[in-house]
Structures are given as structure tokens and as C-alpha cells.
Design a protein around this nucleic acid. Structure first.
Lengths: 325, 325
DNA sequence: GTGAAAGCGCTAACAC
DNA sequence: GTGTTAGCGCTTTCAC
């Protein structure tokens, strides 16, 4: 029923090999014959079977993306950057959500491996050196996005989380704030951890007392942590580990009858699209998610093509965006 | 280098066929032997090659998801519903964004076809009867989500967009609103079109004058359309075709110095997570995106397994959620 | 129950 | 330049 390369070959009066050469743009095919083959392909509506090609090549034109949760508004942008680039390079994309569960992560990696994906883009928080070593043995290109793991042989694309957070806190300090609190993300997430560390360092450097809570990157946790903080202390500025937390915090602040930014200033992180839609509009640290995705694909492709073997660690620029909070 | 079924067979002292039977849970394998094979699989760390299996079976354990844009906050939830269900059933998921471009859509369908996906879940706005017919000939299970196309043989999962919109307008009317406007989505999107039609019908039924603008489902377009409306008319209520539009509209309303909901009431649609994070909190029509995704996978699997051949059109329940706007 | 062998659709030597 | 052929790793008759 389905049209195969053999059908095309017969139709064009050539061998499968020739058709294969045409498909793969092998230059040494007679122009005449090439035309004939192309014609047959059109006429028959032939569509090469990607699965068969993958098997024959032992590698596929597919990339895998493994991230915590596509519902978190930071990730769709990353995913689009990846998908757009991947597509441009002729790759399809697998996607899967780990919910930060190491088991899911391992599971997905295995699955993708068995699908012979050309490479995997991983946003992980649960990978440790031991697992990384095993992963490396799979001998499949891996790029870590956004959250880096020390001492791994993998390429990475990220921003300087420490610096970004430090700058945010510094901004507050320069504005004269003394009572600055930080609502952090999970400590097992490297980026959250670095932001928290930067916050602590900055505070201490200026002789200020760090005050932070650890949450889970959600709006709800931002809301709850902020309430907890407000019940115990007087605060004039809060730095949220991401925008959702910051937005939740604002909600809590306002519910207490305080004004943002008059009574309490807020800065988030990621600059998700809702930062500019919120009311008041959220000040945030812009993380170039889309570009991170693009660069990740670039790195993977360099590996696939074998044009580079040295590990590359890309750090992209963030940018503090002052809005209303 | 890689461990194949043959390695396992040799290690266990059996044939490839037997190993294959074990992998596929074929019951007629001697328990003893089965144990032996299982042991070898563990010991060698064997991972069946999904590509080879797909080729041999001429079908893969992969589903395809084609949607307009994962960055639109409605879709990640749908995607999660699909991914979670797919995973549970042992399927992986391809994902791709069309930006509502028919060419992209066709392109992706072809790609997925050539990847021998087991089925495709499609959120389309550009499919017409002619294309649908061609698609149907591919002989691959397709489920249309959210946006339906008349007279297609495909399974569908959606809500009753017309009814949902009608209820929203009715709600306004019962509250005594007369000057109700509608900020619609693109007319080539079936769901947007139905919502707009429902708006018009409801207004006319109550002797009110319809006033609407057509946009593109974005925050920006909601903002601009609302400005355009406010410049021309006096309005006390606005129904946005989705939450982004509604949020943009609120921004425009407030910029004009009007209060929401005191001067102008607003209802959105989709109930994206930000509806409850916005300030004021957005009233919206809840669309069960996650469940739509789950059901779509169910329908696909029924087709794959061949347990059903009759077209099924699922209509899930929406729910009006009154919040602050 | 188990194995041998053909074949899924394609690619890549290797000959000619 | 082009065709022949041997796989890629697995499933699935078909004998035994």
C-alpha cells in the first residue's frame, strides 16, 4: 500500500541505490536520471520512511527535549526556541516532562536513547556526577540548559544566575533598601541555589541580614512564603527566584493592605510574558529563554556533525528590566 | 558497541525469536527460559531499539502533537494532558508549532507520517474538507482538538464553544448590561468564530446591538482592540475570546482611567493559570484543556488498537468562573 | 515452546 | 555514475 523506495526505483527504471542517492542529494547522479527520479517521486507521492533511514544510519533526525514542566511559563519559550531551530535543521522534536523526578528523567532518557535520538536537550535538577557519567557512556550528545551540573562533560547553555541575582539585590541596596528578603526556588535546583547564594552574599557584603524562604517556583509558594515573611518581619523589598513567585508575593503583599511598589518593591526573574501583563507590571530579570533554546540546538548539531569535541559552556546575557514593581 | 537482541540471545543461550517473545510479553515462553532471558537483559543492560521495532511492526510507539504555538498559555496544559496520558500508555510524543500556517501544518503532518507515528493530535485552524480528505487517506489515526472541522471523518474533542460564549454574554445581559462588546479571535479559527457567532446571536436575541472587533488571541491585540472600541463607544462589559485578549483589554480600560469591574466588566475564556493571578482576578470560562488532552489520547489509542471504527465527537463541559472582573 | 529465516525500507560499501 | 548486495535490529510466519 505504502510507496517505498523500490516503487520509485521501478517507476523511474533505476535501482534503489540511485533513488537513495537522489534523496540524499548525493552529487554524483546524472542530471537526467535525477530529474527522472524526482519526477517519479512527485508522481507517486513518495515520502521516505524516516524510521527505515534511521535504522540504516543508526541515527535519527530527531532531538529530545526533557524539561521539568511545560506548564511553567518559562519553558514554552525555551521549547519554541528549540523547536524552531531544530525544525530549521530538519530535526523533529520529542518532548517530555519530568516534574523534577529523577526517575522520570532516567526513564525518558532511556526511551529517547532507544529511539536513537540524535541528541538530548536536558533541563535537569536531579542529575549528579554519578548519573552524568553513566549518561555520558550512552555516547549521545547532550546539552544541559539553564541548570548546570558541576564537573560534567556535557555542553551547557545558561545565564550567569549568580550574577543576575546579585545585580537584582544590588539594585535594591542602591535604592536604599535595607530589609530585602528573597523567596527562593527549590535548593536542589542549581539555578535557584545560585540565586539564593548570590542574595546571601550580596546582603552580607553590605552588612545586611539575609532573610529568605525556600519554595517551589510556583505562584502559590510565592504567595505563602510572602505571607510567612510578612508575619514575622518588616520588609521593603523582595527578590523572587522567578516571576511566578514574585507574582504570588505581590498578591500576598497587597492582601495585607500594603502597596507595591510604594511599601514593598518586587523583582522577579525570567521575564515571562506575564511579567508585562501583570498589574502592576513586574520588574524582572530577563532570561533569554528562546535564544538559550536556539543555542542548545546549535551545540547539539556541532556534536552530531562531529565538528567539535571540546566541551562548550555558553553563558548568555541576562538583563534587568525595570517596570512598575 | 550497542547491545542488540542477538547479544541477549547468545548470552541466554536462546534464539533472537525467544528474546523477542519475552520482550513482547508473549505468554508462550517457558518460565525458566523467560527468567534466563530476563536475567541476561538485566545483566547486559539491554535496551530494545525502538526504531528497529517500529520498522518491523510498521508502526511506532510515538504520537504526534501539532498545535499553533506552545507559548500561548492555553496549550501547555493541553500538551501536558496529552504527554501524561501518552506516557502512561507507553507512547512518546513529538511536538511542533504551526503558528497557524497551513504550510507548516502540512509539512509537520508529512514529517510525522514519515516517522510512522501511531497517531496525530491536531489543533488546526487551517484544515478544510479537501485537505482533510487527503489526510484521511494517510490512514493514520487523527484526533482534532479544540477546533473542529465540519464534515471530517476524524475524531474530535472539544467544548461547546458556542454555548460557552452564549452563556457568558447571557450572564452580562442578566446583570443588566446593555453595552457589551466582544473582542474576537481570528475568524479562520473555528472556536473563535463560534464564540463570535454566539455573541452576535445572544445580543440580537435580546435586542441589543452587537459590537465586536477581530484580533489574534494575543494580549497585544486585546489591548489594541479595546482601545479602538473605547474610542468609539461607551461600553460596560467586554467578553474576550480568550484570556489573553481579556487581560489586554483590562489594561487598556484601566489606562483610560476606568475601573474594572466598576465601570467595565470583563470575562475571558480558557481560564489559563494567569486568570487567577491577574489583578483584578479575571473571570473566565474554564476550558478543561488537560482533560481534552487526555481524552484525545484515549481516542487515538482506541483507533490504534482498532477497538472502534466509528467517528467519535467528544464535547467536554466548560464552566463559567466568576472572579473579580 | 523454540529456532531458522525472511523481511520491514533504507543506506553504504563494493563492483562494474 | 549506477547497480548489487549486505546489513541496521527487530518481529513474525513457519517448521519442528
Amino acid at each position: 500500500m505504502k510507496i517505498t523506495i523500490l516503487d520509485v526505483a521501478r517507476h523511474a527504471g533505476v535501482s534503489k541505490a540511485t533513488v537513495s542517492r537522489v534523496i540524499n542529494h548525493n552529487p554524483k547522479v546524472n542530471e537526467q536520471i535525477k530529474e527522472r527520479v524526482l519526477h517519479s517521486i512527485k508522481e507517486l507521492g513518495y515520502q521516505p520512511n524516516a524510521i527505515a533511514r534511521s535504522l540504516a544510519n543508526s541515527r535519527s533526525n530527531v532531538l529530545g527535549l526533557i524539561l521539568p514542566d511545560i506548564v511553567n511559563p518559562y519553558f514554552p519559550v525555551l521549547a519554541r526556541g528549540i523547536e524552531d531551530s531544530a525544525r530549521q535543521m530538519g530535526f523533529s522534536l520529542f518532548i517530555s516532562n519530568t516534574d523534577n523526578d529523577p526517575e522520570n528523567e532516567q526513564d525518558y532518557i532511556k526511551k529517547m536513547y532507544s529511539q536513537q535520538v540524535g541528541g538530548i536537550i536536558l533541563v535537569t535538577s536531579t542529575l549528579d556526577e554519578a548519573k552524568a557519567e553513566k549518561l555520558d557512556k550512552l555516547n549521545i550528545p547532550i546539552v544541559l540548559c539553564d541548570r548546570l551540573i558541576e564537573n560534567t562533560p556535557f555542553d551547557t547553555v545558561s545565564i550567569d544566575h549568580y550574577k543576575a541575582a546579585y545585580e537584582a539585590v544590588l539594585y535594591f541596596i542602591r535604592k536604599g533598601h535595607k530589609k530585602i528578603c528573597h523567596l527562593a526556588g527549590p535548593s536542589f535546583v542549581q539555578s535557584a541555589d545560585m540565586r539564593r547564594q548570590a542574595y546571601i552574599d550580596a546582603m552580607q557584603e553590605f552588612g545586611l541580614h539575609p532573610l529568605y524562604r525556600i519554595g517551589d517556583f510556583s505562584y502559590q509558594s510565592g504567595y505563602e512564603l510572602m505571607n510567612s515573611v510578612l508575619n514575622e518581619a518588616d520588609v521593603s523589598a523582595v527578590f523572587g527566584a522567578n516571576d511566578l513567585i514574585a507574582l504570588g508575593a505581590i498578591n500576598a503583599i497587597q492582601e495585607k493592605g500594603l502597596k507595591v511598589p510604594d511599601d514593598v518593591s518586587v523583582i522577579g526573574c525570567d521575564d515571562i510574558s506575564f511579567a508585562q501583563m501583570s498589574n502592576p507590571k513586574l520588574s524582572s530579570i530577563m532570561v533569554p529563554a528562546y535564544e538559550i533554546g536556539q543555542r542548545a540546538v546549535e551545540l547539539i548539531l556541532e556534536r552530531i556533525k562531529g565538528v567539535r569535541s571540546k566541551t562548550k559552556n555558553l553563558i548568555l546575557e541576562h538583563r534587568f528590566i525595570k517596570r512598575e514593581t
